[in-house]
């Protein structure tokens, strides 16, 4: 996205909008991660405590999900930049 044609007031406004959106995105990423790892790792409800096996699964799942999102973000940024670039002759 290119906000260079925005005036100062508009750029300030967009900065606030983007900050707010990033905060919301982070919260949704976080709760989506918890839900996904809970659903994959927890299948035994004979106890309310996390077993050590479940805990290890959750920690690996969270770790992997964050690395996954980061890698997707890198590729996404590259491909988006490519798609926005003027077509090559």
């Amino acid at each position: 996205m290119d906000f260079s044609q925005f005036n100062a007031a508009e750029q300030a406004h967009m900065t606030k909008v983007i900050e707010k959106k990033q905060m919301q995105d982070f919260m949704r990423l976080y709760s989506g991660l918890v839900e996904r790892c809970f659903n994959s790792c927890c299948n035994d409800f004979t106890s309310k405590a996390l077993s050590s096996k479940e805990e290890q699964c959750v920690l690996n799942c969270a770790d992997k999900f964050l690395k996954h999102s980061e890698r997707v973000g890198q590729r996404f940024a590259e491909l988006n930049a490519e798609a926005m670039a003027p077509p090559k002759p």
């Binding site: 790792c41 927890c42 106890s47 959750v58």
Partner: peptide
Amino acid sequence: VCIDRCVAKFFEVNKKVGEKM
């Protein structure tokens, strides 16, 4: 009984993930 344990376990997972992050 399953619901009670499930909610408790979800909170546990939420806490572990929060600590990790």
